[in-house]
Amino acid sequence: MLAKRIIPCLDVKDGRTVKGVNFISLRDAGSALELASFYSDNGADELVFLDITATVEGRGTLLSLVRDVSRTISIPFTVGGGIRSEEDVDAILGAGADKISINSAAIRNPEVISRLAGLFGSQCVVLALDARANSLMPSGYEAVIDGGRTPTGLDALSWSMEAEARGAGEILLTSMDKDGTKDGFDIPLTRLLSTSLGIPVIASGGAGSMEDFKDVFADGMADAALAASVFHFHEIDIPCLKDYLRKEGIIVR
């Protein structure tokens, strides 16, 4: 049986990991390569790197980090953050990443998803979708961008369905209401998208306890769960988390 995936997320800036609480304040959590290597050896199923560097020099640093990570770890990894063009994607995949994730660029121009899927294959195109509850939206959730600061007017469910139709291979779904709260994943949001879509959904935002992971798999129907600070600050140890999930009847590697 296909296992549910546990995915640590590394927010990186200039080759080091940082973790924002609600994406605003940042704390340093160490060397990205060292941390990636630690997770790869200690039960992580996949890694996600989100680059929050805005400068051109920073992008060069990112590519050299991607090359180092690709040489060092033996599990798949996704790179996202600031990806706008086919050239960006070509460079990141060429440096050894398995998948890229796009967010704002896809919302501004949905055609980007179709183009990237056609050029590189759906399996490496992850749509990152930040969603926030909004009762005016048909599904009750709105897609937001710019770290949650900018509403888009797009219904989160219909946008994710369009992304799937355009060739996205996976959805990285972050609840902006839950992100940074350690209050648990947004179960209704995750369940809504996961049961409506024919592609895998990675749930993100709100992980605080091992029980939260059980709930997002069992009730939220997520295919994978992503978290950052609970792993970076050793509040949850991945091998222990997997033992716990196994006892709860969740299939993990």
């Binding site: 995936r5 996976e170 879509l197 592609i199 895998p200 295919d223 994978a224």
Partner: peptide, 15 residues
């Protein structure tokens, strides 16, 4: 087969 309810691609760790 696309009518079985599971997700495609088959993506992730399997035994």
């Amino acid at each position: 087969p696309r009518d079985r309810g599971y997700k495609i691609p088959h993506m992730g760790w399997n035994s």
